[in-house]
Amino acid sequence: MGWKSLDDMDLAGKRVLVRVDINVPLKDGKVTDASRIERTTPTIRDIRAKGGSPILLAHFGRPKGKPVPEMSLSQLVPALEDAFGTEVIFVERPSREFIDAQAPDAVILVENTRFSPMEEANDPQMAQFLASLGDVYCNDAFSAAHRAHASTEGVAHLLPSCAGRLMAEELGALEKALGNPERPLTAVVGGAKVSTKLDLLSNLLDKTDYLVIGGGMANTFLAAQGVNVGTSLAEHDMADTARQILADADRKGCEIILPVDIAISPAFEAAESATYVDVSDCPDDQMILDAGPRTVEKIAEVITASKTLIMNGPLGVFELPPYHMATSAMLDCIAEQTGAGDLISVAGGGDTVAAINKAGHADDFSYISTAGGAFLEWMEGKTLPGVAALG
C-alpha cells in the first residue's frame, strides 16, 4: 500500500479538499438515488471529527468545459445536508479568503469542476488554484481515479495527500481480489464484444485460475472454435484473436469456461419460457441469449472450488426474461458461498451492478464497486492516475 489514509493525517484546523463522486440521478431537480452521496458520508464525518473542514470538489455530468445551469452542484445541497446532518455551504467562485471566513468544521461545496476546460486538461494553473484553497488533499472518488484531471491527479502532487474512507475500502477490496488473492481465483467476464475487453482478458489470463466467459463475448469464442452460433451477436472478425486467447490460457494454466448448452430464440425479445439445446445444436435462424442449466452447473462447481471471485458482466441478456436464468443462478451461488465465508467476491461495472440488484444480491457480495471505467481499467492491470498520485 503506497498511499496514506485519513488516519495518517493531522487534520486539526486544516481545510481539507475532498474529491468526491456525487454524480447522482436527478429528476425535476431532486435526487432520486442518493447512495453515492451516502457512501461519502464516513469520510466527511471523520474529517470533521479530526478537526478538519471538508471542501468538496466534484464533477456532475459532461458540461464540456462550460457552465451548464442544469449541471450545477447547487441542486445537490439538500441531499448532501440530509446525508451529512449539517449545513453545506455552496460556493460558485471560491477563494481562500471566503473559505477561511467559514466555521472551522464547515462543509463547503465548490461548483462543478468541469465547468472549466482546465479541469479535464489537467491544467497546472487550475491544480495550483485548487491547492490554494486547502491544506490537505483527500481523494474519495475511485470512480474518477482513471482520469488524470486537475481535481483528481494534478492537485494531489501539490498538497499532503491521502485516500478517503471509500477510496481506501475500494483499494483494499481490489487488492484482496486481484493483487494478492486467496486461490483458486475465478473471474467472470461478460459483455457484448471481445474487442473492447482484450486488455482485460490478457491481464486475467496471467492472474486467474478460472475464467468464465459469457454474453456476446462467449459467442465469439464459440464461433472461433467452429461452433454455429446462428444469428447471434458475435465478432467473427475476432476469430484469430479468440483462438490465440484460448491457446494462451492453455499455456498459462488458466481454464476458460464457455457455455456447453444455450438458450436460443428466433428474436431478441422476452419469452414465456426458454428453449435449451446443446451448444453444437444452434439452428441457423436462431440466436443465443443465455447459457443453459448444464453450463450453470459447471460454473457453480468452479465457484464452489474457488476462494476469490471477481465479476464484470452478466452471462446472458439478463434484462429479458427468461434469459436472466444463468446470471441469477450464478449470483445465487456466489451469494451462498460468500455468506458461508468461503468466498471473497468483488463485482463492478454498470450491467454487473444492475444484474446483482435485479437478483436481490446487493448485500451479498464482499464488495461491489460503483466505479465503471476505473474498475475496468484496474481489472486490465492499468495504473490509475488518481491512485498513483497519492503515493
Rank of each mutant, 00 (worst) to 15 (best):
A218F: 11
S345Y: 11
A389N: 03
S132I: 04
S345G: 09
Q286F: 13
T113P: 07
A291L: 15
Q286L: 04
A58E: 06
V317W: 05
L205I: 15
L178G: 01
L6W: 03
D82S: 14
M9S: 02
D284A: 15
A340L: 05
F60Y: 15
G179R: 04
P321V: 02
D135N: 14
S95W: 03
G61D: 04
D278K: 14
N122V: 04
L11P: 03
E182Q: 15
D332M: 11
V260P: 04
I22H: 13
A223T: 10
G253L: 13
D206R: 06
L201C: 11
R183P: 05
E92H: 05
G348L: 11
G52R: 00
N228R: 08
L205G: 13
N180C: 04
A274H: 03
N203M: 04
I299F: 13
S369W: 13
G164T: 08
E377F: 14
Q128E: 15
N112C: 06
V188T: 11
V107M: 06
L198G: 09
I22G: 12
D123L: 01
A141Y: 08
N23W: 03
M1N: 12
P160E: 10
L331Q: 14
G313T: 11
P42C: 02
M1W: 08
N139V: 05
V24Y: 06
V302R: 05
S161P: 02
D209Y: 01
L384S: 08
V68S: 09
V229K: 10
E269A: 15
I44H: 02
R19S: 07
L198P: 00
A83F: 12
E377G: 08
A329Y: 07
L205T: 11
A249Q: 08
A145N: 10
L222V: 01
G381S: 08
G191P: 07
F375P: 01
D248F: 00
D46P: 00
H236P: 14
A224Y: 12
T241V: 15
S306I: 10
K197V: 12
E119M: 07
K50M: 05
A234F: 08
T383L: 12
R45W: 00
P293D: 08
F318M: 10
M71H: 10
A156V: 02
G341H: 09
G230S: 05
R15D: 10
P104D: 15
I37K: 13
L320R: 02
L158S: 13
M217H: 13
V77L: 01
L178H: 04
G85D: 01
M311I: 11
